[in-house]
């Protein structure tokens, strides 16, 4: 049980996928200008990362490893993620239109969100078992969502401020993200 709690805290705060491991920055800066888009994107990311984490674990340990095909990992993972996103999109459109209305437009963007492939690869590198994989995928994606939503809240304020011209938009976004990351650095002391 202890190992799960440590894993959850370390994935959400200490090794925050966005601010500490630098993954998924392009959509981070793209959709964080407004709160509602940030929220929609976060939910979609949580959804896809947890599913992708589970499926890629099965692919890795039941297909790639037994047949010594681990060099095809990158190729098979990205194909799995791309088709998963496509399937989820079709499923939601047909069966849960309410959810589709909320997440639909973010789903295609997620295939090229490196946080998804990144989390799957980290899970394999750390050699987690299935349950740990699920917990770590969930925590990493929650950490991503948390950072994204908090950041969007700040960015809405920045839009009201008078920023020097060359610093506008992505530039000030990155500097703010740096300050944010500095704040997350404070969590480093939590687990020895």
């Amino acid at each position: 049980m202890d190992s799960y709690i440590v894993l959850i805290i370390s994935c959400i705060f200490i090794n925050n996928i966005l601010l500490m491991q630098y993954l998924g920055n392009c959509p981070f800066l793209g959709v964080s200008k407004r709160m509602d888009t940030a929220f929609g994107m976060s939910m979609a990311v949580v959804f896809v990362i947890v599913m992708a984490g589970a499926v890629t674990w099965v692919v890795n340990y039941y297909i790639l490893k037994p047949y010594d095909l681990e060099y095809l990992r990158t190729l098979s993972f990205i194909l799995v993620i791309a088709s998963l996103v496509q399937l989820v999109e079709m499923f939601l459109k047909k069966n849960i239109p309410a959810l589709y209305a909320g997440l639909g437009i973010y789903l295609p963007l997620i295939t090229t969100n490196c946080a998804v492939l990144g989390v799957c690869l980290i899970n394999m590198k750390e050699e987690y078992d299935f349950l740990h994989t699920l917990v770590s995928s969930l925590s990493y994606s929650v950490g991503y969502g948390l950072a994204l939503i908090l950041f969007a809240a700040i960015r809405e304020r920045i839009l009201l401020a008078r920023v020097p011209k060359p610093l506008q938009d992505t530039s000030i976004g990155l500097v703010t993200a740096g300050m944010f990351s500095l704040a997350f650095f404070g969590f480093k002391g939590m687990i020895h």
Partner: peptide, 19 residues
């Protein structure tokens, strides 16, 4: 060389390029 420095550095470089 830590994560915050990466963000701030890139942000400032982008600012210089924008000039």
């Amino acid at each position: 060389v830590k994560a915050p420095g990466a963000f701030v550095c890139l942000g400032l470089m982008l600012c210089i390029m924008n000039m």
